[in-house]
Design a protein around this nucleic acid. Structure first.
Length: 568
RNA sequence: GCGCCCAUAGUUCAAUGGAUAGAACACUAGCCUUCUAAGCUGGAUAUGUAGGUUCGAUUCCUACUGGGCGCACCA
């Protein structure tokens, strides 16, 4: 990391921290800058006077070779780099590091389990789930890149009351012979069941009808819980459909889990834990239900078991949290779940604290996805499902690819279109900070210009096309003295900083924006400078510059979870 | 009622307390006999309100306004 080292050397000469440096906003002011406001305060000098002091210090020092000049501009100390030297060192550095360029050894192999994609079987998979999946996967990738022993897991809710609702409607609607993915049909049944219940509630005299439905659903639920009978068998069959459907989605998006937990597998241990915690007074009976009373900690009340004796969500989660630490000996267990469950995870952590179990569990929240027409809800069917958005995205990318490459084989067209669609969707979800609500708009999300994955991939494809035409491997990079070459090299050297910041803040939008900025710098350069037609030695050096840029893009794309395309 | 999050250009988003608040989309004027025009160049427009801390506030603090979310049997 040449730029980082350069900053360290300057920092040590000036007795400041490398983190104090900034990059001047109007680039004409310099390549690197040191604002002296904060330092001036402790020294008792004005920032401008301190700048003069530092200038004197620098004049007497043995400066790094890459520094061309420096100058004080008011309270700032600005440095200019020697393009030839900087570029030579910067590119050697990237070539040497290759796929590891940007990697940071901060994780020290700490074991961090990341739980995400907590989908429900028997319910629709929608764009909200996609945000969770892409965010979780990218956090996993960046932590793994930064030397954490990150363990991606998914926890599937296959046992709640929603299952009973779905199966109840499934038997009434009889969709067995409808030509559609079965996982999708189950989601449809869930929405229909919820709707029927809602309608019964609104209707005058609907009370009786609703009670009848609820009783029927409750019967289904109890049969599943008893693990025998027709409904249990139906549960097994339909559950398998959903699981296969999820596996398809994960494969399409290149997401892998080290393990998948199921609610049905931990629920029994959860019930035992509830009994144990009841006995120890950590949980208590109240109005026929079992609750965790956390009022005195300002965390309200968490219901654990319904007054009809059936289990609520936390039962299985209690057992799962314990199981994770016992089986994997974790340093930390992170739940990547919608911010709306923030209170719930505080409650969960508090219960373990009260039980004297020191489990480091934390909640990494992100905000939800909403639609122009209002909040998404699978209960009333106001959703954009995974299959809808995928079909639309793929249709559009395929259309674009066909328009440009009539000569390509179908297989190639389809594979390129698929990669573009995957990248477009992932980038759309990752480019916004996690604590922002995404108001999803299909046309907006599936654009291919501006701040999009297609722009990044197009940048990559253009430079790959040049690299195919000239594969010279040796060159003298100190010939790269164009101002835009220096800008590009500095920007490339800032990749490790972007990775570090994105990883530390667990905010992938930082990396997304960095890659976009980097691409803009290249596209500007591309239009201004001839690469293949420059005189041979210079052309070779420029080819080397592009090779390094490709490496940075490849590394960056892979952290966000999409492919670098050679042609598009 | 209590708690959490958000408020920047017509729209969607940026900006470790620091230099002239940046992009993208849309609108508009240009650029393909240089390597992929899914590109590039130019043009207008913005910090919700009132205070406070500070040499300096989009950023920190307080109040208010507006929007969203969460708070006992949903997950």
């Amino acid at each position: 990391m040449f730029l980082a080292n350069l900053k360290e050397r300057l920092a040590s000469l000036l007795s400041v921290s490398a983190d104090d440096f900034v990059y001047p906003v109007p680039a004409e002011l310099g390549d690197l800058s040191l604002p002296l406001f904060a330092l001036a305060k402790s020294s008792g000098l004005s920032p401008a006077a301190l700048a003069q002091e530092k200038i004197k210090l620098l004049e007497q020092s043995d400066l790094p070779e890459a520094i061309q000049s420096f100058r004080a501009v008011g309270p700032y100390l600005n440095f200019f780099f020697k393009a030839g030297v900087f570029n030579r060192e910067a590119l050697f550095d990237i070539e040497k590091a290759g796929p590891d360029f940007g990697r940071l050894a901060v994780g020290r192999q700490q074991k961090v389990m990341l739980e995400y994609s907590n989908a429900n079987t028997h319910k629709e998979y929608h764009i909200g789930h996609l945000r969770n999946l892409f965010f979780g996967d990218a956090v996993f990738r960046i932590l793994a890149f930064n030397d954490y022993r990150a363990i991606p897991v998914s926890y599937i809710n296959d046992f709640g009351i929603h299952v009973a609702k779905t199966l109840w409607q499934w038997q009434r609607a009889n969709y067995k012979d409808v030509d559609a993915p079965k996982g999708w049909l189950l989601g449809k049944c869930y929405a229909e069941a919820s709707n029927l219940l809602l309608q019964a509630e609104i209707k005058e005299d609907g009370g009786l009808e609703k009670e009848k439905m609820k009783t029927e659903i409750s019967t289904v639920m109890k049969e599943i819980e008893s693990r025998q009978g027709k409904n249990y068998e139906l549960w097994q069959e339909t559950r398998a459909w959903s699981i296969a459907y999820f596996a398809e989605i994960y494969q399409r998006f290149g997401v892998r889990f080290e393990h998948i937990f199921y609610e049905s597998e931990v629920i029994d241990d959860g019930l035992k834990m509830v009994a144990e915690f009841l006995q120890r007074g950590i949980l208590k009976n109240n109005q026929g239900a079992v609750i965790a009373d956390l009022e005195e900690y300002g965390l309200g009340v968490l219901p654990i078991i319904r007054s009809d004796g059936t289990a609520l969500y936390p039962v299985a989660d209690l057992a799962l949290a314990r199981l994770k630490f016992n089986e994997y000996h974790l340093d930390e267990s992170v739940y990547i779940v919608d911010v709306r469950q923030g209170l719930y995870f505080k409650q969960l952590a508090k219960i373990f604290e009260l039980a004297g179990e020191n489990l480091k569990i934390s909640h990494l929240g992100y905000d939800f996805v909403t639609l122009r027409g209002g909040m998404m809800s699978s209960r009333n069917g106001n959703v954009i499902t995974y299959s809808q958005i995928w079909d639309e995205a793929y249709t559009r990318t395929r259309h674009e690819v066909v328009a440009r490459h009539q000569d390509w084989e179908i297989k190639r067209i389809e594979s390129t279109a698929e990669k573009l669609a995957v990248a477009a969707l992932k980038f759309e979800m990752l480019k916004v900070r996690a604590d922002k609500i995404i108001t999803f708009d299909m046309d907006e999300a599936l654009r291919f210009d501006g701040f999009t994955a297609a722009y990044l991939q197009y940048t990559g494809a253009r430079l790959a096309s040049i690299l195919r035409k000239n594969e010279t491997l040796t060159a003298d990079y100190s010939l790269l003295i164009h101002g835009k070459e220096l800008s590009l090299a500095i920007m490339m050297q800032r990749f490790p900083e972007a990775v570090a910041k994105a990883g530390f803040q667990r905010d992938l939008s930082i990396l997304a924006r960095y890659l976009f900025d980097l691409s803009q710098v290249f596209n500007d350069y591309y239009h201004e400078v001839a690469i293949l037609k420059a005189e041979p030695a210079l052309s070779s050096a420029r080819i080397g510059l592009l090779r390094s840029l490709r490496q940075v893009l490849v590394n960056g794309f892979s952290l966000l979870g999409f492919d670098y395309l050679e042609e598009m």
